[in-house]
Design a protein around this nucleic acid. Structure first.
Lengths: 219, 219
DNA sequence: TAAATAAAAATGAACGTCCGTTTTTTATTA
DNA sequence: TAATAAAAAACGGACGTTCATTTTTATTTA
């Protein structure tokens, strides 16, 4: 039969990769066999090799596809946060990071596979220059806040925001994947409030805090 | 020959487990074969089964042994921190957490193996009730600080301290295992200063902060 | 103190299974 | 019908585990 159209090929690859992803996440990379993948994807074993050169190529393709999706979601989150230093926005940011973690916990498991099996070579860029990335997005806002004297002396807004991002991210990851079971002794809602408060207090000048207090944040 | 003394048996197990640990960390659990372990430990393949029932039992034994060591180190850290809310102590705490992470990064890799292969069943208890644990150690100090009005209204000391611990821990983990490469855009020293500052500002009342400012913390 | 003993430890070949990949065969359809 | 996809079979090797055998050594005996 003649060549399949690129669209059809992509669809078939998607089916294979969804099966493989499910299995990788459930039982790890090495514990998942090409036969498992073939059976789950309802494709013959040999046919897998018409679409991928090796098993690792399947893994690679999955995280490429997934990375795009997650990066897009992250972009959408950033779009919705116009004033990143406002406590209410910081809290909303934390909430959205939580959703990102929970909805795509698979993805972060794939990252741990990467750490263990491939020295994190596929995910490395995700953490490199994280602060720079935030600076590229919010740099103007950060600078304006600094000029207005909204910030604590000696506290850099981009560092603080990155730290907050990492804290939120890690909080939900521990809850979701590590069996944290309310490891802060609080519900997710309360934990978000608490963490937001700490970062707001920790970042903003007294004057700015007084201003925000009128519009009652957190608790 | 008669039974070996428990001490001798323990020594031999230690050799086996050190070999296995090295391999598990380097190439993962599934990618490490019993033959690999036997060769590295300079023991015959069959003999491994005189000491362990299965391959997983080796893994289990490794993390049991390791957990004890790490928990002890953590205990030593806590012992050295008498006033956990003092900025200088918080910073010292972060430093020691960093050393713990860097010196035992193997251990945390084993944790990721656990997450992937065993649903974190062996490490789960490490995150459960983390805040409770800190409360058990520093509860009195936290309560006293609260009574003295050292804390921000609405900020719980044990939650804040747990959050700081998680932040420090995660910071060094990302740097060590995930190729963070100064992901906060700062040296470790500067990052510690910055994070300490945020948590101090975020936790302590204005009065207490003013008091500490005289003894110049951070930066 | 030295030889004999017997029980435990150590060995490595063998087992059956499953692995990733390749090759061969069959089915499909422009 | 001819090119291509899909399926099936086959390959060599590696896997965790078992087991019959050999080696070792703490204890007993002379």
């Amino acid at each position: 039969m003649p060549k399949l159209s690129p669209d059809v090929i992509d669809e078939k690859k998607l089916v294979i990769e969804e099966a493989a992803r499910e299995l990788f996440i459930k039982q790890g990379f090495h514990a998942t066999s090409m036969r498992d993948i073939a059976k789950t994807a309802e494709v013959s074993l040999g046919n897998l090799y018409n679409y991928y050169e090796t098993k690792e190529a399947i893994y690679q393709s999955i995280i490429n596809r997934y990375s795009e999706g997650v990066n897009q979601k992250l972009g959408e989150i950033f779009e919705q946060i116009d004033e990143p230093l406002e406590p209410t926005n910081l809290r909303k940011f934390g909430e959205m990071v939580g959703e990102l973690v929970n909805q795509h916990s698979d993805f972060w498991l794939l990252m741990y596979i990467d750490v263990l099996e491939f020295q994190n070579s596929h995910f490395r860029k995700m953490f490199e220059g994280l602060t720079d990335r935030f600076n590229r997005i919010y740099g103007d806002k950060f600078e304006a806040a600094k000029q207005r004297g909204d910030l604590r002396t000696g506290v850099d807004a981009s560092v603080a925001f990155t730290a907050a991002y990492m804290q939120f991210f890690n909080y939900f990851l521990v809850e979701k994947l590590f069996g944290g079971n309310q490891h802060l002794g609080l519900s997710d809602d309360q934990a978000l409030n608490h963490l937001t408060k700490i970062f707001a207090y920790g970042t903003l000048s007294e004057e700015k805090l007084a201003y925000f207090k009128k519009s009652a944040f957190g608790n």
